[in-house]
Computed example of a mutant assay.
Amino acid sequence: MRVLVVGATGFVGSRLVEALVEAEHEVVAFSRSATPSDFPDGVEVFNGDLAEPASLEGLCEDIDVAYYLIHSLTAENFADLDRTYARRFRERASAAGVDRVVYLSGISGDERDLSPHLASRREVESVLESGKFDLTVLRAAIIIGAGSSSFRIVDDLTDRLPLMTVPKWVRTPCQPIGVDDAVEYLVDVLDAPETRGGIYDIGAETECTYESLLKMTAEQKGKRIRIIPVPVVSPELSSHWLRLTTDVKYAIARPLVESMRNPVTVDPERDLQNVVPIERTPVEEAIRRALAR
């Protein structure tokens, strides 16, 4: 199968390219500035930029399946950019006759009072849904792994603050997933035709809170932390607080932390594990692997 990965040099995309090669697919890696040496042998590199339509000529030609992994959190107007980029990709994939698209989105709980970040993910889903291809959407909460901005915030906090006075969102329920599991799900849906046109949640077997995630991460590093939630701190104030506690770019950290007010747990009726069962990695093990890398 000839597979296109849009966002091939990102945190998930680079791992996905490797996994698809191991699964013996023919892989095309879309990137703004990559070279063949950035990927396993045999991967075809397509250099282009969704911000420059002229650079996209021929992007989807002879492609059977495309993975769309683009998120523009580094820009102030990320929602506008995500909408525009998704439309440009949809037009080219539809015109080229791409059979199927897989989009990695975000879990958003009860769908009410969505943060700008999660609302943008939903909008991209809607944009892609109107394409002339079968769309499969996988929704994930925080993805744990080396290179994950969300997990890096957690890691930085446990490094720098033995005593944390934190916003009340620290007790929001979440269901993280290790990056290895996320990639395995992404690859395995190709062999599950019943997932065409479906929307699924992916996550670890158990739920936790951001508070327990912080504590598990600290324990893996042999540290102990004390956490005191403060109900009066707003998401906006807490995003400014992150300027002092993490090296993650503020433009990325702010929309991520604003999303932490939304419970992000797997809906049992949409759990991909029901259709594509894998041996899921415990959260503690996912944290250990991320820290080891």
Rank of each mutant, 00 (worst) to 15 (best):
V5D: 04
V5L: 10
V6F: 11
A8V: 14
F11W: 11
A23M: 08
H25V: 03
V28S: 04
A34D: 06
P36C: 07
P40N: 10
L50Q: 05
A51Q: 09
A51T: 03
C60N: 03
I63G: 01
I63P: 01
D64Y: 11
A66W: 12
I70F: 06
A75K: 15
F78S: 04
A79E: 14
A79K: 14
R83Y: 15
R83L: 10
R87Q: 14
R90Y: 08
G97E: 04
V98S: 03
G109F: 07
E111G: 04
S115P: 02
A119Y: 10
S120T: 15
R122A: 06
V124H: 04
S126Y: 11
V127S: 04
V127T: 03
L138F: 12
A140C: 08
A146L: 02
F151P: 01
T158A: 09
V166K: 08
G178S: 11
D180K: 12
D188A: 15
L190W: 03
T195K: 09
R196D: 03
G197L: 12
I199G: 01
Y200M: 03
G203C: 10
K215R: 15
A218C: 11
A218N: 12
V233W: 13
L237S: 13
S239H: 10
R243T: 08
T246Y: 00
V248P: 01
A253P: 06
V257K: 02
S259V: 02
S259C: 05
M260P: 01
R261E: 12
E269N: 09
D271F: 06
L272Y: 10
L272A: 11
E285F: 01
I287L: 05
R288S: 13
